[in-house]
Design a protein around this nucleic acid. Sequence first.
DNA 1: ACTGGTTTGACCTTTACTGACCTTCGTAAT
DNA 2: ATTACGAAGGTCAGTAAAGGTCAAACCAGT
Lengths: 164, 164
Amino acid sequence: MITLSDYIEDYLKKLLAVAPGQYVEIQRSELAEKFQCVPSQINYVLSTRFTPERGYLVQSRRGGRGYIKVMRIDPLYQKIWEELQKQLYSAAEKEYGCEMVKLRDFLMRLYEERLISRREAEIIGSVMREDIFNGLKIGSKEKNELIKRLVSNMLKAVLQEGSM
Amino acid sequence: MITLSDYIEDYLKKLLAVAPGQYVEIQRSELAEKFQCVPSQINYVLSTRFTPERGYLVQSRRGGRGYIKVMRIDPLYQKIWEELQKQLYSAAEKEYGCEMVKLRDFLMRLYEERLISRREAEIIGSVMREDIFNGLKIGSKEKNELIKRLVSNMLKAVLQEGSM
DNA sequence: ACTGGTTTGACCTTTACTGACCTTCGTAAT
DNA sequence: ATTACGAAGGTCAGTAAAGGTCAAACCAGT
């Protein structure tokens, strides 16, 4: 099942692919018109699919001559590990812990950056699911710590192994 | 006696038989409607009849435009799956559960038979360690179940993706 | 009666989409 | 310069549309 948001995401990615430079500039209302949706849906797509975790940055300007600029973030190979740790231990401190969704987004980015293969992404991703704890009596603090360790370990394993 | 679940199972299998590709996509509520049952019965059928043991995998997405995808898996991979389950649930009953050593042996075999790459073996292996639980208050029964689920999920991920 | 598979429904989580209302900023009129 | 207007884009809460979970009730065969 493909949603409208998926189409819009696709469209933007295709634009990015052929764009000279690492960015594209669009008009929100124009795009909304093109896809026959309300303008705020564009924001929805941007905020759910073009996040930093997925390797994108969005800038915009309001008012007359306003625009939205979508950029790809550079690969930053060295920083990958740090970024992961930040992911794991930022929201983590708020007691509610690392959000699986964000983690998976980050994973997909590693895949898109070709640091890991599709299969590797799936393998690692299979651990980032709330439902692995279903029916098990485990405290949420423990759940969280476990996820962090597992993901860290797995990533460490690939990063140590070198190129795929 | 033939139950409703049997009919639903049949129906899905027939769909799969004529489907181009090794999968079918359905809407849970639609199917429930067709068979005049509650939606959750579809989950029941899927979880009891379309398991990896029987050669199937199920993926899904929630929310608007959600769907359920039922896939066939390759017989070769199915064998592997069964072996893993045997590994996980044989010694498992002896309270101390799946021995990591045995699991690692199994992993190595997968690698030697070229079903997984070296990197994949490293990733999966990084989870098969007692020390991931160090200092965490988790019952040994839970630890055990968790390891099984994690390993199963990871292998499932490989099955889904097919040959490397 | 017991047992195990089946069926159901109440409640939950996730995702997509919409619309009313708000903020920002260029620019044309004063 | 100042102001007023209009043309962007932003926010957020609400609605709807999926699918997931779990435990209780319900049979059927022994």
